[in-house]
Design a protein around this nucleic acid. Structure first.
Lengths: 203, 203
DNA sequence: TGGATTTACTGAACACCATTCAGTATATTT
DNA sequence: AAATATACTGAATGGTGTTCAGTAAATCCA
């Protein structure tokens, strides 16, 4: 009986169609300004249809977040390739910062917008986990070889991630204007910060 | 002619009444869930009246942000009192982290919610500037005495603030759940991070 | 094959939202 | 006392997320 398989497949295609349109519009106009009606319009279905595939707008956001984290993971896999774990850590940091600078709307979706994960804690496993473990692995390898000042693995991950996220998110919220007066591109400044920071945590 | 003075005063009182109600409701229900109608109701005026005092909801948010930064500044003044600039830097960091943990909704308003400053750059001078210069001063004093590893003042401020903001905001968005498994209170963990980080940037 | 049933979708309706503005009532000035 | 300026109202406009009775097509079962 191939019918139910086809139905399943069609359901998946429809979900993908919705999330693809949603992602596109979230990035172009921002999450808040994208309405269910707009999304429905753009895929030429009625608003009600979207609710047959997603419980609410938050669930749609959650799905798009998942894709965004996949993109970050891809960027990690592509750029953080060095055999030397210390060098790789720097690649990770710079990839992270670049990702945030180049995809500000995406970064917003992933980290800044209040997402449904606040509600349904354990239902879904965290979207960001896989990218995060990429960092944890790298840190673990550095620490195994005694290359970092940290004693505790969790503290290491916490501090490194906080620094990277802090650099990106302060910048995205324009708080850096307070200090960065000139018109120089922000990227070299943040890269310098990454380099200096990583130097400061080496033994 | 005392009439125009009284009018001025009454206008100020009305603005304060609105922002006070708005702040209260933003903190209780969040910015998104607080409507102009609700605020108007709570102060027993019509919605239209609020628009006689504030251009739109964003301007109201901006005003509330200003108050929030004042609160942070007060916390700094109260807690960061040590003569030793290094010790004071630690007090600043812990005050910052505590502030974020104890007032999550306020912290959201200040840093995370997309605020009108994105639009009217130069019109208002930045709300957070004064609190920020408190940190800059402290860092300057440390560096003047050669106590920190930084060579550039801007990089110092950027990195320290990013770390503090990263610690707080990752936590507020529950991203730390990925790594902090246990039920232990989050505060000691973040304090430890602050201590370790500040140790790592000392000469 | 033909009637019953399930599935997919619609779009109007509901209860909200931010914002505007003609109208009104009070206070001030002339 | 009349004219003007000020402060406020609340209905109206054009949006929002979400629901749900109704419809039409696809599938199932006799």
């Amino acid at each position: 009986m191939g019918i139910s398989e086809r139905k399943e497949r069609e359901k998946g295609e429809m979900k993908k169609m919705i999330t693809t349109a949603a992602m596109k519009m979230f990035l172009e106009d921002g999450y808040a300004k994208t309405s269910i009606r707009n999304i429905a319009d753009s895929i030429e279905y009625s608003p009600g249809t979207i609710y047959l595939y997603y419980k609410d707008k938050d669930e749609l956001l959650y799905e798009v977040q998942g894709q965004a984290f996949l993109q970050l993971l891809e960027a990690f896999k592509k750029n953080a390739t060095s055999k030397d774990p210390i060098k790789r850590l720097e690649q990770l940091g710079k990839t992270y910062v670049s990702f945030g600078l180049e995809n500000p709307e995406l970064y917003d979706l992933m980290f800044i917008i209040r997402a449904p994960m606040n509600v349904d804690d354990e239902l879904h496993k965290d979207n960001g986990a896989e990218s995060f473990y990429y960092l944890v692995d790298c840190l673990g390898e550095c620490m195994k070889n005694g290359l970092l000042i940290f004693k505790d693995h969790m503290q290491a991950a916490l501090q490194v991630w906080s620094m990277m996220h802090g650099l990106v998110s302060l910048n995205l919220r324009c708080r850096l204007k307070v200090m960065v007066m000139g018109e120089e591109s922000i990227q070299p400044i943040l890269f310098k910060a990454v380099e200096e920071y990583l130097d400061s945590i080496r033994v």
